[in-house]
Amino acid sequence: MANSSIAAVSFKVVLLGKGCVGKTSLVLRYVEDKFNGKHITTIQASFLNKKINIDGQRLTLAIWDTAGQEKFHALGPIYYRSANGAVLVYDITDVDSFQKVKTWVKELRKMLGRDMCLAIVGNKMDLEEERQVPVEEAEEYASKVGATHWFTSAKLNQGVEEMFVGLARDMLAKNALAGTLSRQSSIRRNMLVVTDDEPAPAKGCCSSGA
């Protein structure tokens, strides 16, 4: 599909999820390969980018790490507008955090339609024995809403790279489908799609998911 003659593509990826599920840890692990058990609370989105190469296609992931607290939910649109992909993180030991993922999926599908690639991520795999969210339930839900599902451990550096690369591949495929449309216009299309497609995804996934 894409060859190296095409200039480097830039994708915007937004991380969403309940507070303290490990969004910042995932990004820091992926971008800087660091893990710090005691990092700072994210209040506002922080921005990091990562240059990667997939099958000869150079691309830049602009990763937006957001605050997790419910209160900041209202600020979501600032961060996820014109995003190509979203990483929806939950903590496998926290059922509430998985519910939060469901509300984000609903909101994103409603606002941005199906053009956005979603990756649902069960983090803190290292705490497997304390697992609260059943694997089957999570994977079933993900496939239902057209998202990929991953298990990661930012602490042990498991599955983090794979997850981001997998998401990047999805975004590349979507990008190729979008064809000759420039990114700017695809953003516009997104906005249009919202009204056009709204009933379809809502019926398809969210009604069953909720």
Partner: peptide, 16 residues
């Protein structure tokens, strides 16, 4: 109620 829980998570993340 919900914000009470978050406090505990944030204490250690303040000036770590």
């Amino acid at each position: 109620e919900s914000s009470m829980d978050v406090i505990e998570l944030d204490i250690a993340r303040t000036f770590p």
